[in-house]
Design a protein around this nucleic acid. Structure first.
Length: 937
RNA sequence: CGGCGCGUAGCUCAACGGUAAGAGUCGUGUCCUUAUAAGACACAGGUCGUGGGUUCAACUCCCACCGCGCCGACCA
């Protein structure tokens, strides 16, 4: 007789009530997301109780251009996990996503469009198109982010190009100006002389270029350390040797840089003496045809400070300064320094208080400042070089002149070589009123995950130069500065900037370009210096880092999102943002308030391929989040994020995602077993109080509590892989391999409404419901699916609106110890013995066996739990024998000789004891005959 | 080239300076057919990137090198 129909089996996949084996996430997830939209889950999450207060994760704005890539996905998913966890932990956790809209990449794309059409738009037209372009990508990326399952105020994101945001940028700039942080000065930028424009780094292409390579001697005028050994401080016939591949920058020379830690030597050639770095002395001597290595003097680089040379052409001095970027690779170890023509030179010049000399005009010709003999000479084409070389030769200071091929920056548009040219720019002074030190303190008082982040940004802030805020571009927020037409004085007064802010607020930032200064400035506005009444507007825009660096003011403090607070609890961005957003936000916030805009900062590493290499389209190793979602689902991507230690660089590939998919299937199958055994269970009528449950059921609830505690600690530390491993191991080791397997007999064979089965079902229900909550921040969709199947929606619309599960153990310490001992016995003794019996042949299925335990000291514990053991070992019978000699427990396996019950397949002594069911054991006979129940054992 | 960081089984992650470096996963073999495109059991897998050093003792601390990544520089 077939008794299968009398068993309480797990629901099969065909049953409409069942949780299906196939997740089918690519189609299931959009339906779940539609449900979230329908109930307005984000709003509901803000309305749930928040005993712990508010927790704001402030979104760093991605750039609104292009499809999102895996790095975006990692970042946004990690943020989403944090927000959902904090909410479930008991915080009010709003999340307002945002976008960074201004900037060069969009301007370039739009420029290309116009160029393709042969149009030359004015700034306002250009900006209008940029705005449309950015807006289109915002909508595009928004869909992609939402598809990841990220919860937030997607209907009200912040945009740096919104009117209110742009007004805040203007205002922020004005406030910094009022506090004295903003100044105007020269700074070298990469300049294309043929396009007559400054270029951004991204617009520069490096390629081979042949330059004139010259060695020049600078007569020493003042030698306080008497390095030259002439016995006097103003030696004759003593020279510094320098090398350059840009002869045209010699007229702009203002200093010679030496490395403080390098060794320098003086050598003699005829009656002249020359100073060079020791490692390069040999080469330098060769220029004179000398080989003798004798040095007539030597000095540490740091001892050269104070030495002063004469400029080889102009009538001025050129002091020796220290710079640690001086290398011993090429040249002489003494570096020609022209602050107007190089970034390093500029920084050195600023530090040393040198002026910034740039005798080159926009078209790349020498101005009068270069010297009367050079005026009008063009850099491009080499005219300037040859005139300078000729002058040096005539002055007798040219030592050598050769050709030198090296990598050199070129304009990406016209492909001509670029030059560094100092132009007037706006800056934020990083050392104003101890700002650098205040920033360092603000860094110290924040929490950094991982902790080394603090060092990283710390050294960046310690070493960063002043912030150059000017960009010679169209797509951005105009710098709200006015220049007096009469005297040229700049005006950043509160009245002027305030007028611009009001204008932008009223009409948008395009109005800055559309209107004349007189239409913007308040009536009667006059120059403070000369009382002039006519003004010109600044044409540069602000660095877009200034935009994003203002988000804490424009978003957190604006009042537009009243649920937000400032400072934010946490910022979370990729490690490149130490130099980017973290830095710019810190500079502005410290400048205005003296404190950081964040309490904690988490950084995520880079996404690499399976070999640890960066992803590049050309390498074909790019994993696209859209493809993963279409093929496997967002929960797979989310689980991948949770499985990694994302503080460091993380790896991703199809093979790795396959591993994550396997882990997902394990977790899903665990949920399936739990859910599909609850089809006839109601918490209202069938639940068994924990303290009255079967010991094994109490034990698994105890374990669940531990896993929940571990996971919550992992979430709390932003280390989601701890959650992943804890839950995955729990599903595998405790649930699948052990608990769920062991309770099958009770679940399937005991009476449907028997207390022993209801006890197991109560545990299953608790497990399913708790795991759904525990995993809701990570597997948001699957948790939602489980929640619905459990019928929980009638109580609470989503597991994301529940509390994080907490321990609810009723197990005593002694019971826990005893259970652990029995499980250890199963693992280390019984299973191996069963395996050995299986390998030896004869006995295949453990259900056919009897296990004999011979024990000494542990006899009492074994006997106490004897009735648990057959199920725990998955065998038909367990016999315990006393054996005082036994070290630990001896396990023997033999065939069980009882009759096999046709229903439960266990071999039992009482099979046939009920006359009406001769092929059944007593328990099964009682179940088949109604009215009898099996007690909890 | 410079600054910062990372490098534990094929993979994802563990391991207070102290017992023979642990889990899961993948792989292989066996069992089950009552979670079944599931499940159970077992086995195999590591000179802890390499080489030095400190220490009674190093995966753990220090140095160098190699590989990888981020940021910066590509230069006089």
């Amino acid at each position: 007789m077939d008794y299968k129909a009398t068993l309480n089996l797990t629901l099969g996949d065909k049953d409409p009530r069942a949780m299906p084996q196939r997740a089918n996430l690519p189609t299931r997830e959009p339906a779940i997301q539609a449900y979230w939209d329908e109930i307005d889950l984000y709003k509901l999450s803000l309305e749930r109780p928040s005993p712990l207060g508010t927790f704001v994760l402030h979104d760093g704005p991605p750039y609104s251009n292009g499809d999102i890539h895996l790095g975006h996905a990692l970042n946004k998913i990690a943020k989403d996990i944090i927000v959902k966890f904090r909410s479930m932990q008991g915080y009010r956790a709003p999340y307002v996503p945002g976008w960074d809209n201004h900037g060069m990449p969009i301007e370039n794309e739009v420029s290309k469009e116009f160029r393709a059409k042969g149009e030359k738009p004015d700034k306002v037209t250009m900006r209008k198109r940029c705005r449309e372009y950015a807006a289109a990508w915002v909508e595009h990326q928004k869909k992609q982010f939402k598809r990841l399952g990220v919860r937030g105020d997607w209907d009200h994101p912040y945009l740096t190009m919104s009117t209110k945001f742009e007004a805040t940028i203007v205002e922020t700039f004005g406030m910094l100006a009022q506090k004295g942080f903003i100044y105007r000065g020269l700074r070298p930028v990469l300049w294309c002389a043929s396009c007559e424009t400054a270029l951004a780094d991204a617009e520069v292409e490096y390629g081979p270029h042949t330059s004139s390579s010259i060695t020049v001697r600078f007569p020493v005028k003042h030698d306080p350390g008497q390095v030259f050994g002439r016995g006097i401080e103003s030696p004759a016939d003593s020279y510094l040797l320098i090398w350059t591949t840009t002869p045209w920058t010699i007229p702009a020379n203002l200093a010679v840089a030496a490395h403080p830690d390098a060794d320098y030597v003086v050598f003699e050639h005829e009656t002249d003496r020359y100073l060079v770095a020791e490692p390069l002395a040999e080469k330098a001597r060769a220029l004179f045809g000398d080989t003798s290595p004798d040095a007539v003097g030597r000095a540490r680089g740091s001892n050269l400070a104070g030495m002063i040379a004469s400029h080889p052409l102009a009538d001025r001095t050129s002091p020796v300064v220290m710079a640690d970027y001086v290398t011993m690779e090429d040249g002489t170890g003494l570096v020609h320094t022209a602050p107007g023509h190089g970034k390093d030179d500029f920084d050195t010049g600023r530090r040393e208080g040198l002026e910034v000399l740039c005798p080159v005009d926009a078209s790349g010709r020498f101005t009068a400042a270069a010297g009367p003999e050079f005026v009008g000479a063009k850099i491009l084409g080499g005219e300037a070089d040859s005139r300078v070389i000729k002058a040096l030769m005539e002055a007798g200071h040219l030592v050598s002149n050769t050709r030198f091929e090296h990598s050199y920056p070129h304009c990406w548009r016209c492909h001509n070589p670029l030059l560094f040219r100092a132009t007037v720019q706006w800056f934020m002074n990083i050392d104003h009123e101890g700002h650098r030190q205040k920033s360092a303190e603000a860094i110290q008082s924040a929490n950094w995950y991982p902790p080394v982040s603090a060092n990283r940004i710390g050294s960046m802030v310690a070493n960063r130069p002043d912030w150059c805020l000017s960009r010679q571009r169209a797509w951005g927020v105009g710098i709200p500065a006015f220049y007096c037409k009469a005297c040229g004085a700049e005006d950043l007064s509160e009245a002027a900037v305030g007028a611009v802010r009001d204008l932008v607020l009223r009409e948008g930032s395009d109005a800055w370009y559309a209107k004349a200064a007189s239409d913007i400035l308040p009536a009667g506005f006059a120059c403070k210096k000369c009382s002039g009444a006519e003004f010109e507007k600044e044409t540069d825009i602000l660095d877009v880092w200034f935009d994003s660096g203002s988000t804490h003011r424009a978003v957190l403090q604006s009042g537009v999102w009243p649920e937000l607070v400032s400072p934010a609890n946490v910022y979370l961005e990729g490690s490149d943002q130490h130099r980017g957003w973290f830095n710019s936000s810190l500079m502005i916030s410290v400048g205005l308030t003296g404190a950081a805009p964040f309490k904690s900062v988490v950084t995520n590493g880079w996404v690499l391929d399976e070999n640890g290499k960066a992803m590049h389209k050309s390498l074909g190793n790019v994993v696209s989040p859209q493809e993963v979602i279409d093929k496997s689902g967002a929960d797979i991507l989310r689980l991948w994020v949770a499985s990694t230690d994302y503080f460091e660089d993380v790896r991703c590939s199809d093979a790795l995602l396959q591993q994550v998919s396997d882990a997902y299937r394990r977790i899903r199958n665990t949920f399936r077993f739990l859910v599909n055994n609850l089809y006839d269970f109601s918490t209202e009528t069938d639940a068994v109080p924990t303290a009255e449950m079967h010991l094994l059921d109490q034990w698994i609830i105890d374990r669940l509590g531990e896993v929940a505690a571990l996971s919550v600690a992992g979430y709390d530390a932003y280390e989601f892989h701890r959650v992943y491993h804890a839950v995955h191991n729990f599903c595998t080791v405790e649930l699948s391999a052990l608990y769920m397997d062991v309770i099958k007999d009770r679940l399937y064979c005991d009476g449907a409404n028997s207390p022993s089965r209801r006890s197991a079902q109560t545990a299953l229900w608790t497990l399913a419901e708790s795991l759904a909550r525990l995993l809701a921040p990570i597997l948001s969709h699957t948790s939602e699916e489980v929640w619905e199947l459990l019928g929980m929606r009638s109580k609470l619309a989503s597991p994301q609106l529940a509390d994080m599960p907490a321990a609810q153990s009723t197990l005593s310490a002694q019971e826990r110890t005893e259970m652990e001992m029995l499980l250890a016995l199963r693992h280390s003794h019984v299973n191996p013995a069963l395996e050995a019996a299986k390998q030896a042949g004869g006995i295949g299925n453990p259900l056919e066996t009897k296990v004999v335990l011979k024990a000494g000291a542990t006899l009492g514990v074994l006997q106490k739990h004897l009735n648990l053991l057959p199920a725990l070992f998955k065998v038909s019978e367990v016999v315990i024998l006393q054996d005082a000699q036994a070290e630990g427990v001896i396990v023997e396996v033999e065939a069980c000789t009882h009759e096999k019950c046709a229903r439960c397949w266990l071999r039992k002594a009482d099979v046939g004891s009920v006359p009406s069911s001769p092929d059944l054991c007593a328990r099964c006979a009682a179940v088949v005959s109604p009215g009898e129940e099996t007690p909890i054992i």
